[in-house]
C-alpha cells in the first residue's frame, strides 16, 4: 500500500495552514458497491482522511441518522468481510482510511486477525468509540504489531488524568467529541470545544504533536471554518449520511449532494 499515513495527511494540512477534513460514512449503505461509490466521492471532493463505519446492531454513541443507515446496511446483509472489502477499495485511492467500530464485532472476528486483515486491506487503523485504552490491551498490542493507528476518544467530561492516558495511547490522531451527546444531534461551536482542545493539547505527551480531530456535531462549511482555526481536524459524519438518506431513491443525486457538502466543508477548513 503506497497511501499516505494518517499522520502525514494531518501534517500536510497543517503545512498548508489549515485543518484536515475527515469524512465518515458507514460501509454497506445503500449497499456495498454504493457505499464504496459514496466514500470515493468524499475522497474526490477533498476529504483528507476517511472513516468507514462498521455497521453494528447496538450503536450507543450514534444518533438517529447514522443508526438509520447502519441498520439499513445490516438489513441489506452487510458483513464484516464487506467492510474490509470497502476499506480496500477506498484505501486504494491513497487516502488514509480508518475503520470506526464498536468493539464487539472486532472481538468476535478475533482481534489479531482483524488487525492483520485490516492492515492487508490497506486500512490505516481503528477509531473505537466504546473502547478506552485502559480496556484495550489486546487491541493496542495487535495495532502495534501491524503499525495501525489507534484513535481513542476524549470528551468534555474526561479528567486531565484520563486525557493524558488516552493521548499517550493514541496514534494517528485523538478524537475529541465536541459535545456531550451522540452523533448528529447538536451543533458544536469553536467556543464550546476550545477548552477540551486546549486541555488535550496541553496533556498530550510532550513532543508527540498528536493531532486533535473534533467530531460529533459538525455539519456546515461555516462551522468547519469556525472550528478549523482551533483544531487539527474537522470530522463530519451524520451530515454526509443525511445526504444519502435524503436521496435514497436517486443515487446519482445523493452522490452529487454528498460531493457538494464535502466541497463546502473542504473550502470551510481552508477558510478557517
Amino acid at each position: 500500500m503506497s497511501g499516505t499515513t494518517t499522520a502525514t495527511a494531518f501534517a500536510t494540512a497543517r503545512a498548508e495552514g489549515r485543518a484536515a477534513l475527515v469524512g465518515y460514512l458507514p460501509a454497506g449503505y445503500p449497499d456495498v458497491a454504493g457505499g464504496i461509490d459514496a466514500l470515493r466521492t468524499l475522497v474526490d471532493a477533498g476529504c483528507d482522511v476517511i472513516e468507514i463505519g462498521l455497521p453494528y446492531s447496538d450503536p450507543v454513541m450514534d444518533g438517529p441518522t447514522i443508526q438509520a443507515a447502519a441498520q439499513a446496511a445490516l438489513e441489506g446483509g452487510v458483513r464484516t468481510a464487506d467492510v474490509l472489502r470497502t476499506v480496500e477499495a477506498v484505501a486504494a485511492t491513497g487516502t488514509p482510511t480508518l475503520v470506526m467500530t464498536y468493539w464487539n464485532p472486532v472481538e468476535r472476528y478475533g482481534v489479531p486477525r482483524f488487525a492483520a486483515d485490516l492492515a492487508s486491506a490497506g486500512g490505516a487503523g481503528l477509531i473505537t468509540p466504546d473502547l478506552t485504552p485502559d480496556s484495550a490491551p489486546e487491541w493496542i498490542a495487535a495495532a502495534d504489531e501491524h503499525g495501525l493507528d489507534k484513535v481513542f476518544l476524549v470528551a468534555p467530561s474526561s479528567t486531565d488524568e484520563r486525557i493524558a492516558m488516552t493521548t499517550a495511547a493514541c496514534r494517528g490522531f485523538v478524537y475529541a467529541t465536541g459535545i456531550m451527546g451522540v452523533t448528529g444531534t447538536t451543533q458544536t461551536t469553536a467556543a464550546g470545544v476550545a477548552p477540551l482542545v486546549a486541555r488535550t493539547r496541553a496533556l498530550s505527551p510532550e513532543g508527540s504533536d498528536l493531532p486533535v480531530g473534533v467530531g460529533v456535531g459538525v455539519s456546515t462549511g461555516d462551522q468547519a471554518a469556525d472550528l478549523a482555526e482551533h483544531v487539527d481536524g474537522v470530522i463530519v459524519g451524520s451530515a454526509f449520511v443525511r445526504r444519502l438518506l435524503d436521496h435514497a431513491d436517486d443515487r446519482p443525486a445523493g452522490l452529487r449532494a454528498l460531493a457538494a457538502l464535502a466541497e463546502e466543508l473542504a473550502s470551510g477548513v481552508r477558510r478557517g
Binding site: T132, S135, A155, S157, S158, R162
Partner: peptide, 24 residues
C-alpha cells in the same frame, strides 16, 4: 476494583463504554 469478575485475564465484566460516560 475495575469490575472484572475472575480477574482481567478471564475478562468477565469490565467497562466497555464511551469515554464521555467514564467520568460519570
Amino acid at each position: 476494583d475495575r469490575g472484572w469478575f475472575g480477574g482481567p485475564e478471564h475478562g468477565w465484566g469490565g467497562r466497555f463504554m464511551p469515554e464521555a460516560l467514564v467520568a460519570a
